[in-house]
Amino acid sequence: MDQQASQAKRVSTSGTSSNRASTAKRSSTNVPKAPTSLDPNAIIANHAVLTGIHTISVAAGTVIHPHARIISTYSAVDIGPGCIVSEKAVIGLSDLSQDDPEGDLELPEIIKIGQNVNIESGTIVEAAEIGENTLIDVDVKLGAGSVIGKNCTISACSVVPPGETVPDYTVIYGNNQRRLNKSLQSTPVILDIKSKGHEKQLNVLQRLVPSNLAKWQ
């Protein structure tokens, strides 16, 4: 309760718009609309879904596609600047019983997504943390409480088990094979090229995805 009060305070002090979290709940969805702290430069599509009871904060420049779901029922979600959350991606602990039948898993209090993280469509993110510049490809599942380092690449359909820590510059590919991205580690120019590409992608998306921030504030 105490936590929720603090969240309510955060929401009210964010000062972007009036707080109408409880009144705007649609009758068709019985899940509560999450308290949010959104940067005015963030882009959140009209058909994105932000539900839960904890705070969802989205930083500047981040693009959230239609039909992406961010769920803060069990933990807060903090999305850093310049991230892309594609359609059908789910961020947040959705159902606790699935991953953790015994309940002995340490669940994150906050899901923290760093700067310039690209989360592709269909991905389920239950990780505690994703480091900056990491690419999470299509249909990846990041288990509850896992920690993904910076500059990682998780290729399509990979699964990171709950609670696992993936070090910086790791590439998960193929049949859950892992390797260190030495070229990225040793050649900073590649990182520059990659972030430039990400920047361009963001630039395009910001023009293409119509934003409806007011709906979620």
């Binding site: 290729s155 590439v171 590919y173 193929g174 390797r179 991205n181 030495k182 070229s183 040793s186 590649i190």
Partner: peptide
């Protein structure tokens, strides 16, 4: 460079 496993000839 490999688009899948991120190997590159720089390695």
């Amino acid at each position: 460079s490999c688009p899948f496993c991120q190997w590159s000839s720089l390695e």
